[in-house]
């Protein structure tokens, strides 16, 4: 899965580590580097790339040179405010988080930032089978072959095979028995409707 790299620049060790813990909870987010001062941050950014910078308001105020030389950085900056009413004070950063916010709020803000990175990935993950795919999983669980499913749904076997590939890709489950159990626990089929192997 894709990884989105964050850099943390916060003078307070405790706040920095706290932020890192929250980010660790978010799939795909990774903290690549932490800094307690603008100097070290500036030097690092001369040679390294990253996706987002989370910076405290104090360090942000000291980083005017950094932003002057690199205006595009604003677009990748998330401001960490001590004062919840501060918002981003017209600083045009990508977003801001307040120290008084709850974990869920912070996570949802960061997830929003990550969305464009994962649009393809998330659209393709668990739980988002299309109705047609659910129908196919259901018919597979009832013991039908690709050929029979194709006939039943007026599709070509080739199309059924493509659907099956997409289902495998989305769920990571290849076998019919695995798909059957998936279908039962996701209420796509009941145990009574399932055809067991020896009945086939």
């Amino acid at each position: 899965m894709k990884q989105v790299n964050f850099i943390l620049a916060v003078e307070s060790y405790l706040v920095r580590k706290g932020m890192a813990v929250v980010l660790q909870r978010i799939p795909g987010a990774s903290v690549v580097k932490e800094f307690g001062s603008v100097d070290l941050l500036t030097r690092y950014l001369e040679h390294h790339g990253m996706d987002f910078l989370i910076i405290s308001d104090t360090l942000f105020a000291n980083a005017t040179d950094l932003y002057m030389n690199n205006p595009a950085l604003l677009e990748r900056t998330i401001l960490l405010n001590r004062d919840p009413s501060a918002e981003d004070r017209g600083k045009k950063t990508r977003g801001c988080i307040s120290l008084s916010e709850e974990k869920e709020e912070i996570i949802s803000k960061i997830n929003e930032l990550l969305n464009p990175y994962f649009r393809d990935y998330r659209a393709n993950t668990h739980g988002s089978l299309t109705d047609r795919e659910k129908t196919i999983v259901r018919l597979l669980s009832m013991g039908l072959t690709n050929r029979q499913i194709a006939d039943r749904l007026f599709l070509s076997t080739h199309t059924v095979t493509t659907h099956r590939k997409n289902i495998i890709h989305k769920l990571g489950i290849k076998s019919v028995s695995g798909l059957t159990v998936y279908a039962i626990v996701n209420n796509i089929i009941t145990i009574d409707e399932v055809t067991s192997k020896h009945e086939r």
Binding site: S175, V176, S177, G178, I191, S196, K197, H198
Partner: peptide
């Protein structure tokens, strides 16, 4: 049937 479901699942 239920037995087959569990055993088959684990085998696969």
């Amino acid at each position: 049937k239920e037995r087959g479901l569990v055993a088959g699942f684990f085998d696969d």
